[in-house]
């Protein structure tokens, strides 16, 4: 009775063994097939990324054959449609940075406050009502936000700041901030809710209030997730297109003053994509150089986010 199973397997008729092997081969084939299917699905995103980078780099290469990289990075004028064209990315970069900064000044404090409220203070019933509304806010098409900026927010700002132009980066940035609040708040809330209850109990047991517990214990514990939420918010702000295209004006303007109108990188790409320039022209190729700059910006943000996430990850 104590014979190992291998001995008893050897005593079985060979037919049975081959039968089982055949089944195993079929199973192996099915496993392989499913693996290939999953691999194929995963490759779609990788191939798309590679394809996009290929197009951006190759078209930009033609662009940089005509326009030196140095003048692209240092020239303070962006006038590809003028008789005397200038291709300096700085005005578009300034527009992108200014609108993003205004958006973040709105979105980070509000998004964080909402996350703290929903995670630490709101009763479950309230949370069930507020969360869908936030998700709805995230689902509104950005073109709608653009016209909201143009017809509601900017006229209100004009009451406060006399002589403000009808297109400006302040109005566009504020509305863009509102548009990215859901991304910031929902990720930050997830991070805070993932903090184990025994951490909160430790703080309450010390005599901590809800606010002290939220700010001094839960937030530091969730820091890596909260930073990720901020980085995602910044990436969305940098890449955001329609709101700035509609409400920030379309003049490339080398300024960091949010009260002026300006064009962002993404808004310029929209303008050219509308079809003002012939294919293959240098102006047409300029959108790829601009797109490449935009992609490098978001890529470096993602890298920063990755580093921060690793650095502040808490092992509870």
């Amino acid at each position: 009775m104590n014979t190992p199973s291998s001995a008893s397997a050897a005593s079985l008729p060979p037919l049975v063994v081959s039968d089982r092997l055949a089944k195993k081969a079929l199973r192996h084939f099915k496993e392989r097939f499913i693996e290939m299917l999953l691999f194929g699905a995963a490759s779609v995103s990788v191939l798309t990324t590679v394809g996009i980078i290929w197009v951006l780099v190759s078209e930009s290469y033609h662009f940089f054959e005509t326009v030196p990289l140095w003048s692209f990075l240092t020239d303070t004028m962006w006038t590809p449609l003028f008789a005397d064209p200038h291709y300096g990315i700085l005005p578009l970069l300034a527009g992108t940075l200014t609108t993003s900064l205004v958006a973040l000044i709105v979105a980070i404090p509000l998004g964080t406050t909402i996350a703290i409220y929903l995670s630490e203070f709101a009763r479950p019933a309230v949370r069930e009502i507020v969360k869908p509304f936030l998700e709805l806010l995230g689902g509104i098409p950005t073109i709608v936000y653009g016209y909201f900026a143009l017809t509601v927010v900017i006229p209100m700002l004009q009451l406060l700041i006399p002589g403000l132009s009808g297109f400006n980066m302040l109005g566009a940035g504020i509305v863009m901030g509102i548009a990215i609040i859901p991304y910031v708040s929902s990720l930050a809330e997830d991070a805070m809710r993932a903090v184990p209850m025994n951490m909160r109990e430790g703080s309450y047991a010390m005599g901590g209030t809800k606010l002290q517990t939220a700010l001094r214990v839960v937030m530091p514990a969730a820091l890596s997730g909260i930073l990720s939420a901020y980085i995602l918010g910044i990436s969305r702000a940098v890449g955001e297109t329609m709101i700035v295209a509609v409400a920030a004006g379309m003049q490339p303007n080398f300024t960091l003053n949010p009260l002026e109108s300006a064009q962002t990188i993404s808004a310029y790409i929209v303008q050219v994509a509308l079809g003002d320039l012939p294919h293959g022209s240098i102006g047409y190729q300029s959108i790829f150089a601009a797109g490449l700059s935009l992609m490098l910006m978001t890529l470096s943000l993602n890298l920063v986010g990755h580093v921060l996430r690793r650095r502040y990850r808490e092992a509870y």
């Binding site: 951490m199 109990e201 430790g202 005599g207 901590g208 001094r216 530091p220």
Partner: peptide, 29 residues
């Protein structure tokens, strides 16, 4: 809770330095 302290089953230090963990109760007071 200000008068009665509690130590839990699973050690639950706060995500802070050793010093700040001990100072926590004093700081919130």
């Amino acid at each position: 809770r200000m008068r009665i302290g509690m130590v839990f089953q699973k050690p639950n230090p706060f995500p802070k330095s050793i010093y700040e963990n001990v100072a926590y109760g004093l700081r919130i007071r």
